[in-house]
Nucleic acid binder design. Sequence first.
DNA 1: CGGTGCAGGGATAGCGCTATCTTTGCCGAC
DNA 2: GTCGGCAAAGATAGCGCTATCCCTGCACCG
Lengths: 369, 369
Amino acid sequence: MVGLRTLQPSRRLPFNPDAAYGAITLMTTPKNDKNTRTTGRPTLNEVARRAGVSPITASRALRGIPSVAEELAQRVREAARELGYVVNPAARALASARSQTVAVVVPSLGNQLFVETLEAIHAVMRPKGLEVLIGNSHYSRDEDEDLIRNYLAYQPRGLLLTGFERTESARRMLEASGIPCVYMMDLDSGAGLHCVGFSQLRAGAAAAEHLIARGRRRMAFVGAQLDQRTLLRGEGFRRALQQACLYNPAFELLTPQPSSVGLGGELFGQLLAAHPQLDGIFFGNDDLAHGALLEAMRRGVRIPEQVAVLGFNDLPASAFMVPRLSSIHTPREAIGRRAAEMLLALMAGQSVAEPVQDMGFELMVREST
Amino acid sequence: MVGLRTLQPSRRLPFNPDAAYGAITLMTTPKNDKNTRTTGRPTLNEVARRAGVSPITASRALRGIPSVAEELAQRVREAARELGYVVNPAARALASARSQTVAVVVPSLGNQLFVETLEAIHAVMRPKGLEVLIGNSHYSRDEDEDLIRNYLAYQPRGLLLTGFERTESARRMLEASGIPCVYMMDLDSGAGLHCVGFSQLRAGAAAAEHLIARGRRRMAFVGAQLDQRTLLRGEGFRRALQQACLYNPAFELLTPQPSSVGLGGELFGQLLAAHPQLDGIFFGNDDLAHGALLEAMRRGVRIPEQVAVLGFNDLPASAFMVPRLSSIHTPREAIGRRAAEMLLALMAGQSVAEPVQDMGFELMVREST
DNA sequence: CGGTGCAGGGATAGCGCTATCTTTGCCGAC
DNA sequence: GTCGGCAAAGATAGCGCTATCCCTGCACCG
């Protein structure tokens, strides 16, 4: 009943939608009524029938492929809207051997840092019609590998991964898949890979230089979680101190426990008890530093007079701590955005002029140093 | 070459894998070599051929369907392992009209609360082989609707949604889909729905009662974001104050801005400037309370002597604030876990004895009150 | 005025699985 | 024995799309 093409003065044999895709189809599939496997949602065929075109034309129209006359495309879009049609991503992925999906693996969602990165990625990908799959590896190489294996099965258009710390077999899978991949956050060992981040090593050095410039001489590094990036920051810090002949290996407190405010306070207490002479502490993550500031207040330790405290990442709360926490601000939104854009380019088959993008970092000097 | 069934004394005609699924298949599809649409990954057919069984048997074996003899199943699993076979989820979803996916929509990832809920959900779903899709609605009904529409297209096995605040059309889509759905966090308007949470209304009342019990008489409520749950907490607080004849509508500060530490400090300042006589403040979320405590310290406002401060959610950092923040602890891990389990039951077609599960809340009394 | 190029469509044929019959052989029962 | 019933496979037929080829009509060409 639909689709008598009165609007268009056709140049060809009129296409009879009901005959072609309605009645005949129903006749040649007599078991249609007993087959209950379908989802009940409208299919592309129904849209096509309603618009009076063939299914492929409908497919092309909805995908915005230009070889469809605008008038037809419009009819198809309208039919889709009227029926409430939504593509079946599984069917699309199967037929085209590619999904509309991008997978991201971050090591934690508890760290605000990665949440902000994800937001930036979303903001780039969503407008392109790409679904973002979020995986949390919990800082575990094995989970990271599982997630990658799992996601590769979905044939994502691209992958965004955090850092380079990865099992050998995960690396092989990635390579074998041929799926474009951009690495976020670190640069220091990203030779030959596409990566967007900053040098954790240099950031650690910058921390040391700032404390030295503030006249500090006995400085400690406190790191938790002990992921590669934290270790690199520590290493950068260490080297800069060595260079200034101020390095003391005893002034280093590392623990694999996950970073948290509570832990920061605890480590701060331990450190001061063991080394009361300390006059500066660099924390590998801001939440540790927050805990330290709170613990200092509780103990009456004066910050920064007695000990300067420097954080890392510049989480939103840092500027409001008492005293306001100095921290190294990391450009996670920019990293997320740029990494997403780079991935988009790779997905489009373009080669990227600058495969390694250093987004830098910024020292935020506040009251705590 | 593979699969001469020497191991099993067959009762039937021997199944010749190469003839059935190898050579003949290749002959009847002469264009196989020029078709480059395939992904290159091994398919179930190849696994079946290698194991010397039919594809359906291989499918059944890998899905653990018991009607396959253990010996065959073992051969299939081994073949799959040798080939590095991973199912194509798109093909599976298309063929079975269902995915191995559960979708979750939370209003924010910036709030630690929801991250912890997600972790609990993951912990339940992953072992069942279910993929968890995470959607962030940013406290927007429109985004919530978009996410739901989008996820429904994936034919998830189930949905976990936060709260009941939802557009009419989202509600209709959910109902029409017939996909099981569990609502998390709130109970107050969940009549007829499956929900796991606690009464935001009663939690708000408990906050008021605690402050009253502490001898406070001029109490304010500070809420940001203004999502339904925050408003309900405020409403519960208000009603309890009214009942005690202590309600003063001027002592309420609501803002649609997203909750944050910085905002908490700012609102605290505004409130005290406008109403210096206040002796108790209930913050709708802990990060606001954190900001207030820090701002109080900066201003020399003594907490709790001058003003008692009570938070909500009991975020991990609250116990370490100065003074330690009293807060209403919400059982988000338990909610996530229980909601996931309830959804699992619904997905299995079971009816749930208690469709509304009140997980309660716990007042954590610390130094700030 | 026949060739020939180019659009705008359509027909055909799967993508890689699984739901649903069928078939086969075997067992026990009447 | 014959037959019903059962268990363990296999054959068949799509799921809902899209890649790929193909067809048709028209414009343009010399």
